[in-house]
Amino acid sequence: MMNNSSRIKALAVPVVSVLAGLILGAVIMVVSGYSPVEGYQAMLRGAFGRTYNIGEVFRSATPLILTGLGFSVASTAGFFNIGLAGQALAGWISAIWLALTFPDLPKIILVPLCIVIGALAGALWAGIAGFFKAQFGTSEVIVTIMLNYTILYISNHLVRYVLTDNKDATPKISENASLRTEFLRNLSGGSRLNMGLFLALIMIVVIWIFMKKTTVGFEMRAVGMNPFASEYAGMSAKKNIVLAMMISGALAGLGGVVEGLGTFENLYILDAAPAIGFDGMAVSLLGGGNPIGILLSAILFGTLKTGGLKMSSVDIPNEIVDVVVASIIFFIGISFAIRYIMDKFSPKKGEV
């Protein structure tokens, strides 16, 4: 168990990383001839100035919670699942396909079916990498990167030649398949906030209980810490590798379902795999893999993404927001250096 000093450091690292990222963003604004004060004020107005904006912050955070949880599960089991974007797209495709195929099914049946099929699609797509890792020791990083491109081209082909007649986007799904509700629309000033938020919050609780309170979760954590010792203790490393990747992919698939049924309500031609995959990795790293930390990190990223659109009102390019996000990720990536500095300047035990 962590002592108080370790807990403080664990909390301080992401806080310092965020502050350092914001400061670096401010420095870049100054060097580029922009006012960081005006820029960040515009960002806050863009995120919290209206009820609509607040709804969009939480709408943007929702899929990041799910993909962040997915990365956390794989990471806890000792794997770097860089294929979250492709797994999210697999879930997105499957949910839209089912929604367009059975548009008249009752909502109480169609929405759960779309959610389940989307999670299964993400799990199966991640399971490919898990299988090769378990059976042949193949790098999950290389396989998942390749799978990201594979599903991207599959998706674009399906949109153009299967789901439509040479069009760039599918028709909108029926109301029976949508995650949007009149209640949330009115509550959030007409934003795209949808029921996916509640799905994400449920998954936070489910994953915490699963990883901390179940035998399967314990085995995954054990395999992540030492696969050889776990195997010696009678745990199947191969089984847990595949299972961890499939659970990770299922969560990413749910992120894609939320984007498909809630945010866009269709599927369209993409130039690259969905950004929610890579942003979800950053959210998980910033949150330290902790479900609550992931929730808070996702809200922060939603604030940056949504509020950043308003920075153009003071003539600051939207790309500055990407610089700030990248800076935060950078400082998270060198968290060992932050810990080293904190250890260097913190008083040693026994010192007055």
Rank of each mutant, 00 (worst) to 15 (best):
R7I: 15
I8A: 15
I8C: 07
K9T: 10
G21M: 02
L22W: 02
G25W: 01
A26K: 04
A26L: 04
V27H: 03
V30W: 03
Y34H: 15
S35Y: 08
G39N: 08
Q41S: 12
A47W: 05
R50D: 09
V57P: 02
R59A: 14
T62I: 02
T62M: 01
I65W: 03
T67I: 09
L69Y: 04
G70M: 11
V73Y: 03
N81R: 13
Q87R: 11
L89R: 05
W92L: 14
A95T: 03
L100V: 08
T101L: 07
D104C: 02
P106W: 01
I108V: 15
P112M: 10
P112E: 03
I117F: 14
G118L: 08
L120R: 08
G122K: 14
A123Y: 09
L124V: 15
W125K: 10
W125Y: 10
G127T: 07
A129W: 06
G130C: 11
K133Q: 12
S139K: 12
S139V: 13
T144M: 11
T144K: 09
I145F: 12
L158C: 06
D168L: 14
K172Y: 13
K172T: 15
S174L: 09
A177W: 11
A177H: 12
S178K: 11
R180H: 09
T181V: 12
E182P: 01
R185H: 05
G189D: 02
G190V: 06
M195S: 12
G196D: 02
A200D: 03
I202H: 02
I202R: 03
V206P: 04
W208D: 05
I209W: 09
M211S: 08
K212Q: 13
K212V: 06
K212L: 06
V216P: 04
G217I: 09
G217S: 07
M220G: 10
A222T: 15
N226A: 10
E231Q: 14
Y232R: 14
A233H: 09
M235P: 08
A244P: 13
M246Q: 07
L251Y: 07
A252K: 13
G253E: 05
L254H: 08
L254T: 10
G255T: 11
V258W: 03
E259M: 15
N266Q: 13
Y268T: 12
A275R: 08
I276S: 02
G277L: 11
F278C: 00
D279N: 13
G280C: 06
N290C: 00
I292N: 00
I292W: 01
G293W: 00
G293I: 05
I299N: 00
T303E: 01
G308H: 02
S312G: 14
S313E: 03
P317E: 00
I320N: 03
I320C: 01
D322F: 09
V324R: 00
S327V: 00
G333L: 05
S335H: 07
Y340Q: 09
D343I: 07
F345C: 05
K348Q: 10
K349Q: 06
E351M: 12
V352H: 02
